[in-house]
């Protein structure tokens, strides 16, 4: 490449660098995101390579991604339906499965995001690149692991005779909310993991409790009245509520739940992103 004349593009893209102190701990946004965009292939390739290394791209690897949460859904179904005693509406199993699948996408992104920076240590210490690509790649991996479960849900959806119609166009909207939220969490915990290497070992407990507090094992509108004021404090309340309304109840999500989900996901994305970027400089000396 050095033999080529410096085109205006090269001038922008990596032939001329100026490194200056970060203002208020943050790198300059425009070049940062320009570089991020330019190197997006790295995030995809990393995800692809990791899935290949974990054999997730084989048939049985894909099958395992489905079997695991499906078994979990069955366990909870037995737990709620039989031990809980109360008879649930016939759509309950579909609701439970769709909820668990989406919940595992978010928590999976959080868990693999948490280790994304720490495990990228060598690369971080030797290459200058926007480290945000690492949690982005983790979220992308979690999403790809979620896709086969979505296909399985589609089968359940049809088997359960749930409505199919234009309201399903809201599915991508809710998924977008969930993805932004998942990425925000991935960045938040990726940064925390650098400072507290045991943070990840506390996460599974948090995830389990969080699952019970989220309208997955129960329906959002069946929540006890006295809990209503505090439910919106659960970031997944809006997203999961909308998810269930679209898929199970078969209508467009209520404006309130949709807005609540959007607020939580954008807020988390922004907070996670800023926290990550403000600490990014230290990664190279802290890992």
């Amino acid at each position: 490449m050095s033999s080529q004349a410096i085109s205006p593009e090269d001038e922008y893209l990596g032939e001329h660098h100026v490194y200056e102190p970060h203002r208020a701990g943050l790198p300059k946004m425009r070049p940062y995101f320009r570089e991020l965009w330019r190197r997006k292939a790295f995030a995809f390739e990393l995800s692809h390579t990791e899935m290949h290394a974990a054999n997730t791209d084989t048939f049985f690897g894909q099958a395992w991604l489905v079997i695991n949460p499906l078994l979990l859904a069955s366990v909870y179904f037995v737990l709620v339906e039989i031990i809980g005693g109360k008879s649930q509406p016939p759509t309950f199993f579909a609701h439970l499965t769709s909820g668990i699948f989406l919940f595992y996408f978010v928590s999976g992104s959080m868990l693999s995001g948490a280790s994304s920076v720490v495990s990228g240590g060598r690369l971080i210490m030797n290459t200058s690149f926007p480290k945000m690509l690492l949690p982005i790649s983790a979220t992308y991996t979690a999403f790809r692991r979620f896709l086969p479960t979505l296909a399985v849900y589609a089968v359940l959806h049809v088997l359960a005779g749930l409505p199919i119609g234009p309201h399903l166009l809201w599915v991508p909207v809710v998924l977008l909310e969930a993805s932004c939220f998942a990425l925000g969490l991935a960045m938040l915990f990726a940064t925390m993991q650098v400072y507290f290497r045991d943070a990840k070992s506390f996460l599974p407990y948090g995830v389990r409790i969080w699952l019970y507090l989220t309208p997955v094992l129960w329906f959002a509108d069946k929540a006890p009245k006295r809990l209503l004021p505090i439910l919106p404090l659960n970031p997944l309340y809006g997203i999961m509520g909308s998810w269930s309304q679209v898929l199970i109840e078969g209508h467009q999500p209520s404006k309130y739940l949709l807005a609540l989900g959007a607020a939580w996901s954008l807020g988390t994305l922004l907070a996670g992103g800023l926290y990550f970027m403000s600490r990014e400089r230290e990664f190279a000396v802290r890992i």
Partner: peptide, 22 residues
């Protein structure tokens, strides 16, 4: 590392003209 852009400066300025490999 600073010249490579891995560790941004706390003060001062580094300017690079060219493709860097480390």
């Amino acid at each position: 590392r600073a010249v490579a852009g891995i560790l941004p400066p706390s003060k001062g300025k580094i300017e690079i003209h060219g493709r860097v490999s480390t």
